[in-house]
Nucleic acid binder design. Sequence first.
DNA 1: CGACTCCTTGACTTGTCTCAACCTAAGTGG
DNA 2: CCACTTAGGTTGAGACAAGTCAAGGAGTCG
Lengths: 265, 265
Amino acid sequence: MISVREANSLVTGNDSLPVRVARILFRSRTIRNLGESDQRLVAQAQWSCRALDGDVTIFDQGEDCQNVSVLLSGWSLRQQTLPDGKRQILDFVLPGSLLGFRSSEFCTYGIETVTPCIIASLPARQFYALISRIPALAIRVAEIVSESEVRAYDYVTNLGRRSARERVAGFIAQMVDRTGTIAGASGHCSFELPITQVAIADALGLSNEHVCRTLSKLTADGRIRMQGHRVTVLDIKGLLSDACMEFRVARGLQMGSGDGLFVAA
Amino acid sequence: MISVREANSLVTGNDSLPVRVARILFRSRTIRNLGESDQRLVAQAQWSCRALDGDVTIFDQGEDCQNVSVLLSGWSLRQQTLPDGKRQILDFVLPGSLLGFRSSEFCTYGIETVTPCIIASLPARQFYALISRIPALAIRVAEIVSESEVRAYDYVTNLGRRSARERVAGFIAQMVDRTGTIAGASGHCSFELPITQVAIADALGLSNEHVCRTLSKLTADGRIRMQGHRVTVLDIKGLLSDACMEFRVARGLQMGSGDGLFVAA
DNA sequence: CGACTCCTTGACTTGTCTCAACCTAAGTGG
DNA sequence: CCACTTAGGTTGAGACAAGTCAAGGAGTCG
């Protein structure tokens, strides 16, 4: 898992697009796992780079997505919509994740941008050709998918067995981690959460009214402070305790990136 | 995705263990993607085969699992337990799935057998060495993980946005599909569901009492019949409609295996 | 035979949803 | 520049789905 902060440091600079893609896929400034001939292979691939606005559909639920893409910057989300119109957000996709890699012909979920995004894409067939010539890359793909899988399992537990307060508190704690937010001297930390409360509700399987009420309560209890889309965490321990997640920190388990707050804790 | 029925047909016979493992990983009777030298590589790996009883822990939540295993027969499950004792079943693992492949050091969920199982294992390091020498295998691993990821996303939507009746009906419909159950001339189909109602409840994020009530209602409404662990589906269309899933069949989307009921429908 | 697990049913409680009203801030267009 | 619209957020009251607690039944095992 890679945090937004770390991902940003990997895609900046003057390197060519393929090199930046390879860097972020390997989560490494040096592409240390990649030999020279492999680097040439990645560089020769016909990556196309697109800058997308926020709130744009990358591909629709049920569509046969023809491209495999790497998210270089920005936030996107995976979502499913039911016939009766209810929406469930499955995951927020942060830089370094793959979009459109799948084993079946159709994709059962759709992907939309949240903020403006930059993605690098390759036709699926070329992507397969590329990773089948670079085993280390194929393995990284499996690992990246596995990261999403693990996070999806965590969501299942959240939705199946946790109360609204636990879910909201846990969501904020996870976002602290995934964004790579670092606590200041005061122990507080703050980050941009570029989504609406409706989106939080759709991610946590709650109604937007209930999310609002729960956030108000967390604020009243001195756990967080919200100003617009800026979230300040005042009491991370209390938040983790609310989320029923202390055990993860205590046992040294990763919550997400493993380079954020929780490894240090 | 591979159904239980199909998986069974791939692991039977007199072939050596590595060949059976390769077959089931490639979902192919002929290992058509695998050249001869690659077959030799798979065969040379030190696969160890274990027969496990039902209700046995394969590895615990939080443990650093040292082996990557392939489930050859039987049912297992992934689960998480919260500090307060609540349990969530994340997925039922059916033959052909990987156990223990992951990108992080610790595994955030545990795996237990449900029925007696046969698994073939390789130390993680050797597994990595193997797939890094056989790109086609590395890609299949990524695809298998992706299958679990997609199913996990479906569970997220189930738990987040569907009612108890929708979840239970959808669960049964999915199991028809995943087991590879085929409808008889009457349109009915029946299969063994080797789990308790408590397990269904823990998988669907419900209380066992509520699962019981819901199953009773589905029975009263003529959708299903249950005798012990044998489930007979009397009205699959009604069941899919209850599950709010007709759209998948209508649009030709896979529910699971893609070789079960729903592709034919 | 008891002891156990699993299932079933009933009565009551509660967490969350739904509906509805209202507020605020940020456009938008005349 | 101001009225209007719109999207997002807030708060309250009532409804209901699902949980909890409790008790009993059915089957199985030693």
